[in-house]
Structures are given as structure tokens and as C-alpha cells.
Amino acid sequence: MKGMTLIVKQISQLMVPSIFLLGIYVILHGHLTPGGGFAGGILIAGCFVLLVLAYGSDEVKSEVRKWRASFSESLGIFMFWFLAVLGLVQGSYFFYNIIAKINPGHPGQLFSAGIIPLCNMAIGIEVAGALFAIFITLAVLKAGEKL
């Protein structure tokens, strides 16, 4: 896929950092404000999509290789499973909020609600990887190329 004009390249260069930051904000504050893992993960995937569309797939390919969409997707869902199984450690049930019982924190602060923000992070990584993998597979890959 070829890149777009200089105007699009410059504008996306300005926009991508703020979109990425907004995605991280939405994920981290998922237990305090509207948003959460799904919305933030899709914002992060969207900024990679914007880069690929603006600069062309050949230019971003080495950068994309480093991030490895399918790997981060598997990592995210593995983290989510791990957090769920963590509840079984104390002899409690699946998805038991073990951290909130040890150190509850004050409601409304960033470090509160136990495993809920950690689950949000796991879902964010998974969704970002999944959406970007779908985009690469459908729109970018040529014959004989690996993800």
C-alpha cells in the first residue's frame, strides 16, 4: 500500500501521539470515568492504522514488525486469564478480586478497585493487537508475506 501526500503525513505526525496518549488515559482511568479497555485499545489500534495509511505499509513495516500485533493479542488474553486465575490462589473463586481485599484503596483514586484496572490493561492490549491484526491481514498483506 502506498502512502499519502505530505499534508496527510504531517497532520498524522501531529495527531498520532495525542491519540495514543488519549488511548492510554482511557485505559488507565477505565474504573473511574467512562471508557475502559475496549475503547482505549481500539484508539491505540487506530493510531497504528493511521500511521500505516498515511506513510504506506513499506515505510512502517520495520516499525510494525517490532510491535507484533498477533503477539500482543495473545499476551493480552493470557494476562486476562492469569488475573482471573489469581483469584483461585487463595482458595477463593475464579475472578475473585484478591488485590482489593488485601489493599482496598480509596474509591475515586487511580490506585483502587483491585484487579479491575489491571483487567482493563489486559483487555486494552488484546483489543489493540486484535484490531490491528485484522487491519493488516485484510488491507495490507501481499501474497507470501508473514504477519
Binding site: G30, H31, L32, T33, P34, G36, G76, I77, F80, W81, A84, F94, F95, N97, A100, P104, G105, P107, G108, S112, A113, G114, I115, I116, C119, N120, I123, E126, V127
Partner: peptide, 23 residues
Amino acid sequence: TGASNLVAAVILDFRGYDTLGEA
């Protein structure tokens, strides 16, 4: 749960299984 966003409390604590299935 201690989460001030009630939606996050429901989808990740009370209904964690559903979110796991969704993911």
C-alpha cells in the same frame, strides 16, 4: 468493588465471565 465507574465494576467484577468470553 471500589470502582467508581459502575459499568467497569459490572463488566469486570460481577460479570467477569462475560467479559472473558467476549475477549
